[in-house]
C-alpha cells in the first residue's frame, strides 16, 4: 500500500465518521433533556433535505435559501414531535417512548413516500464538483464542508453549553428537570429549544449526506444506526467519547472495507462492539445506569 492510498482511505473514513457524528449530535442533545432515544431523528433530517430539494424547482429559490428553509422545517417538525408526542409519553423507559419515536419515524417515511414518490433523486452536489488533488489524494469541497461543519457545530455547541446562561439551563435540565424548575429555569422552553436545535442539526447532517449518496425516503437509516451504535457504546449522556467513537467508526469501516472487502464490514464492526463491551471494566459500564 502506498502513502496516498492510506491518506485517501483516512480522509474518506474521516468524512464518513463526521457524518455519523453530525447525526449523533442531535441524538445526544435530545437524550440529555428528555432521556429519549429518538428513532425519528434521521427522518426529521430527511424532511429538511426533501423540503430544500423541492423548494428550489417549485419556487425558484436559490439553493442556500431553500436549504435554510429546509432546516427551519426540520426544527419545527422536531419541536412538534416533542410537543405532540414525546412529552405526552408518561413513562420514559417503559418502552412506550421507543414505540412513539418508531411510530413517528414510520409516519414521516410514509408521508414523504406519498408526497415525493418512492424515487431516488440527485441532490445538490454542494461543492462535490470542485475537485483538487493534494499529495496524490483526491478531495472535493464537499468533503471539506462536511469536516468543517462538524467542527463548527461542535465548537458552537461547546460554547453555548459551557459559556452561556442557556447552556447552564440545559445542563441543569439534563441533570434533573425538577430541580431545574425550582431554581427558576423554564424547563419547557429549554426542552423546546433543544428539540428544535436537534432537528435543525439533523437537517444539516441529512443535507450533507444527501449530497454524498442520493435522496429518497430511506437513505438516513444506515447512518442513524451507526450514530446509535457510537452513542450507546460511548454513552448517550456524554459528548466527547461518543463523538470520537462515531468518527472512529467511519475510519474503521473505511480501512476494513479496503483490506477485507465490503462484506467483512458487518462482522468486523459488530464483533468489535461485542468484544469491546465484553472486556470493558465494569466501572466504565456503570455510567449509563438508569436514573431514578
Amino acid at each position: 500500500m502506498t502513502l496516498d492510498t492510506a491518506l485517501q482511505l483516512t480522509i474518506g473514513g474521516l468524512v464518513s465518521g463526521s457524518l455519523y457524528g453530525l447525526v449523533l449530535i442531535g441524538i445526544l442533545l435530545i437524550y440529555r433533556v428528555s432521556r429519549v432515544v429518538n428513532f425519528a431523528h434521521g427522518q426529521i433530517g430527511m424532511v429538511a433535505a426533501m423540503c430544500a430539494f423541492f423548494l428550489v424547482p417549485h419556487f425558484g429559490l436559490p439553493i442556500a435559501v431553500a436549504l435554510g428553509l429546509g432546516l427551519a422545517v426540520a426544527a419545527l417538525v422536531s419541536y412538534l414531535v416533542d410537543i405532540l408526542v414525546i412529552s405526552r409519553v408518561t413513562k420514559i423507559g417503559s418502552g412506550f417512548d421507543l414505540i412513539a419515536t418508531l411510530g413517528v419515524m414510520m409516519f414521516l417515511t410514509a408521508i414523504v413516500e406519498l408526497v415525493a414518490s418512492p424515487k431516488s433523486f440527485k441532490f445538490f452536489s454542494l461543492g462535490a464538483q470542485i475537485e483538487f488533488t493534494f499529495l496524490g489524494v483526491y478531495f472535493n469541497a464537499n468533503d471539506l464542508t462536511v469536516i468543517l461543519t462538524l467542527a463548527v457545530v461542535l465548537g458552537l455547541l461547546a460554547l453555548v453549553l459551557n459559556k452561556t446562561g442557556l447552556g447552564l439551563s440545559i445542563r441543569a435540565v439534563a441533570i434533573s428537570p425538577e430541580i431545574a424548575r425550582t431554581t427558576g429555569v423554564n424547563v419547557q422552553a429549554v426542552r423546546a429549544l433543544v428539540w428544535a436545535a436537534g432537528g435543525a442539526i439533523a437537517g444539516v447532517a441529512a443535507i450533507l449526506i444527501a449530497s454524498k449518496v442520493t435522496l429518497n425516503a430511506f437513505y438516513m437509516t444506515p447512518f442513524l444506526v451507526k450514530a446509535f451504535v457510537a452513542g450507546i457504546v460511548g454513552g448517550l449522556d456524554r459528548f466527547v467519547r461518543p463523538m470520537a467513537i462515531a468518527v472512529g467508526l467511519g475510519l474503521l469501516e473505511s480501512w476494513v472495507v479496503y483490506w477485507l472487502g465490503a462484506d467483512a464490514r458487518i462482522p468486523a464492526v459488530f464483533l468489535l462492539i461485542i468484544v469491546v463491551l465484553g472486556v470493558l471494566p465494569s466501572k466504565y459500564l456503570q455510567d449509563l445506569e438508569q436514573r431514578p
Binding site: 432515544v37 446509535f228 451504535v229 450507546i232 457504546v233 448517550l236 462484506d263 458487518i266 462482522p267 459488530f270 464483533l271 462492539i273 461485542i274 463491551l277 465484553g278 465494569s282 459500564l285 449509563l288 445506569e289 438508569q290
Partner: peptide
C-alpha cells in the same frame, strides 16, 4: 453471559450485534 454485567441500552446493543451477525451469516 453479557447480561451478567451489562444492562440497559448497552445490552440492547450487544444483542443487536449478535442479531446483525446472525443475519449476515444467514445471507452469506
Amino acid at each position: 453471559i453479557f447480561a451478567l454485567r451489562i444492562s440497559g441500552l448497552r445490552f440492547a446493543l450487544i444483542t443487536l450485534s449478535f442479531g446483525e451477525l446472525f443475519y449476515w451469516a444467514s445471507v452469506r
